[in-house]
C-alpha cells in the first residue's frame, strides 16, 4: 500500500489500529468501524433483536471501546476478542435491563435473517458461513451456545430454562465450542 492512497478497511492491520487507538487518534475509530462494524452489528442484532436498539448499542460500544481502551491488554487476546466481548456485554445489559427475555427466549434462530443471508467476507480470510457452522453442531449444542452467547443466560439459567442438569449443560457447551474450534483448526 502506498502511503498516499486512502486506507481501506481490510488493509489496516490490527496492530496498526491498536497503536493508533492507544495514541488517542480519533480518525482510527472510523477505520475501526469499517473493519468491525458488520460483525459487531450482527452479534448485537442477534442479541437485542431490533435494528434501532442494535444501532444504539453499537454506538455505545464504540464509545466504551474508545474510553476504556487502556484496559485492553493485547497479550491476553486479539482486539476482536476484546471488542466482541465489550459489545456483547453491552447488548446483554440492554436486554437484561428491559423485558426482552420473556419475548425473545423462545424465538428459534432459524427464523433469523442471518441464517438465510450469505456470509459477507470481512476481515477474516478463513471466515466460515453460519450454515456451514451450524451444520456441524447438533441442535442441543447449538441451542445451548445461543442461549449462553446471545441470550445473556448463565449456565444455571440455561439448565433451568431447558430443564436439564447443570452438568449436562456444561458438557454440551464445552462440546459445542470444541466443535467450533475444530472448524478453524
Amino acid at each position: 500500500m502506498s502511503p498516499t492512497t486512502p486506507e481501506s478497511p481490510t488493509s489496516v492491520t490490527e496492530d496498526l489500529l491498536v497503536q493508533r487507538l492507544r495514541a488517542r487518534d480519533e480518525s482510527a475509530m472510523t477505520l475501526f468501524y469499517d473493519k468491525y462494524s458488520s460483525a459487531l452489528y450482527g452479534v448485537i442484532l442477534r442479541i437485542v433483536k431490533t435494528e434501532e436498539v442494535a444501532e444504539d448499542v453499537l454506538q455505545e460500544s464504540l464509545v466504551k471501546i474508545w474510553n476504556s481502551f487502556q484496559s485492553y491488554d493485547a497479550s491476553k487476546g486479539r482486539l476482536f476478542t476484546w471488542v466482541l466481548n465489550v459489545s456483547r456485554n453491552l447488548a446483554i445489559d440492554k436486554i437484561r435491563s428491559r423485558q426482552y427475555r420473556v419475548s425473545s427466549r423462545t424465538q428459534p434462530l432459524e427464523e433469523s435473517a442471518a441464517l438465510r443471508q450469505a456470509a459477507t467476507p470481512t476481515f477474516r480470510p478463513e471466515h466460515i458461513g453460519l450454515q456451514e457452522m451450524t451444520s456441524k453442531l447438533n441442535p442441543e449444542q447449538k441451542q445451548i451456545i445461543d442461549l449462553l452467547y446471545f441470550g445473556g443466560f448463565t449456565q444455571s439459567e440455561v439448565a433451568e430454562e431447558l430443564n436439564l442438569p447443570l452438568g449436562t449443560v456444561k458438557t454440551r457447551a464445552r462440546a459445542a465450542i470444541k466443535v467450533l474450534a475444530k472448524l478453524i483448526r
Partner: peptide, 19 residues
C-alpha cells in the same frame, strides 16, 4: 486462542450489513 477463535467465527457468521 483456538476456543476463542472458534466462538468468534460463530459470532462472525452472524455478520449483518448495517442499514
Amino acid at each position: 486462542d483456538l476456543i476463542q477463535q472458534g466462538l468468534e467465527s460463530y459470532a462472525q457468521a452472524h455478520t449483518q450489513n448495517p442499514p
